[in-house]
Write a protein that binds this DNA or RNA. Structure first.
Lengths: 247, 247
DNA sequence: AAATCACATTTATCTGATTTAAATTGCTTG
DNA sequence: CAAGCAATTTAAATCAGATAAATGTGATTT
């Protein structure tokens, strides 16, 4: 049962291993996404249970959850098989987390931000049309946190995330709000990267432009302001690694 | 258990009820999304099993899958509870299907297309930059099917869907490709609606403009062409029911 | 060569007991 | 009376072992 796959980070986190089933979900999910089963045949239900030292019930429930997330598929006689990545649910929080646990990939970072450049400007435009006073207040609160962070009184990253999520919510479209996790994940990764490339501080003024456009009810301005924010990051990424250059 | 919510389409489809667990997943999932449990307390594991005439194992596995999709949450002593819609995974194929099974809502239709107007134009722009010959061939194939459909030799809806999905794929970004289901679902619903409002046939020429821009490597043109396609649908929806009009 | 049948393998399902987590209740104590 | 603490209780979590159903493989028959 050699479970010592590298660093000493055993305790998966807050409420992930809160019971055997979720612990197993996390372990197998990570293993699949990281690629441990590439080329190899996936163990049978009985083997999995033995390997992880749990009962078959626990195993089956973990496998069923991974099936629900699109990572596995099970059929009698054929066995349980890892599904191609095209059928993984990439917007699932767990899947996103596991994706980030494999080696840092600038490709993934770019794909994240290519998605953001579609979603967030449009969310901002929508917000400029339909946001309620409460919505705008949340956007404002995010911006204020960023200003405080600039003075070292708050966390730069977390306040940035709060701002972007507030805008998503202000679009009043549940599909946009759903990008909560993608955006915060992308931001966490992006900022680490952009900080490495050049010591860029989060541009509070540019964010304020987005807020102003939303509060002022100007969709086009909001779209453009948000787009420029994200385009900056994309440009930075393309600078580090232009178009189709191989890894 | 009055399940007679309209038309006589009882058999859920191809491989949904392929076994007890999936049948139960579908039944409970639909019930939750349709709102059968709003306000009511969710049954315990034992009650659920009895109600559906299956064992607790089957029940537990179905509940675990619904948990993985964000619809349920289970804790000892507290019981199993329906989660707020904000934590549902709206990009899950099953959840999308269940969403459409509740009464037709023009709000949902608008939200779908508000998402499309963000995703698809950007996917087209991306495709114009990075699509391979194969990708373009698939887009072309979709367009040709639409032309044949115009002459009554193919299905209008299915060829339209094929075109849009080919563009998503051509973006070479797995996150965009993931919108496969959302887009086809949205199209199926949109087209039924637009046909009802006015006898509009799918505008093959406008679609050809998208293809040309992608094949010609012109991102801005591709973005604009695709955007105008979807904006047309959005305008139609807003005409039927302007901005924030109630119910 | 095609159709059929028997078999082996793996998931699917059931049953019933045991364990663990966490609200609630009620008792004790300051 | 309020605060803290322990017993109770409820529901999920886990285990064990058996049986059923599905399905690919290969032998057998036609």
């Amino acid at each position: 049962m050699a479970n010592m796959s590298g660093l000493g980070i055993e305790d998966a986190g807050p409420q992930l291993g809160r019971n055997l089933t979720y612990g197993m979900l996390d372990a197998i999910g990570r293993a699949i996404v990281v690629g441990d089963y590439d080329g190899a045949t996936f163990p049978t239900e009985a083997e999995l249970a033995k390997q992880h030292g749990v009962s078959r019930s626990v195993t089956r429930e973990a496998v069923k959850m991974l099936t629900a997330k699109g990572l596995l598929s099970a059929r009698p006689r054929q066995g349980t098989t890892v599904q191609p990545t095209t059928s993984w649910n990439l917007f699932d929080t767990d899947v996103l987390r596991w994706l980030l646990e494999r080696q840092f990939s600038i490709d993934l970072l770019r794909q994240f931000n290519e998605l953001r450049v579609a979603i967030e400007p449009e969310a901002a435009a929508l917000a400029a049309r339909v946001a309620t006073a409460d919505d705008i207040e949340r956007v404002n609160a995010g911006l204020k946190r960023m200003e405080r962070a600039e003075r070292g009184e708050d966390d730069t990253l977390e306040s940035d995330i709060a701002f972007h999520i507030a805008v998503l919510r202000a679009s009043r479209n549940p599909f946009y709000a759903q990008f909560r996790d993608v955006v915060s994940t992308a931001l966490r990764t992006s900022i680490r990267f952009t900080n490495r490339v050049k010591g860029r501080t989060a541009n509070v003024a540019d964010h304020a432009a987005v807020r102003d456009a939303i509060a002022g009810g100007n969709p086009d301005k909001a779209r453009k302001a948000m787009r420029s924010l994200i385009s900056d990051v994309l440009d930075l990424i393309d600078t580090a690694k232009p178009d189709g250059a191989a890894g």
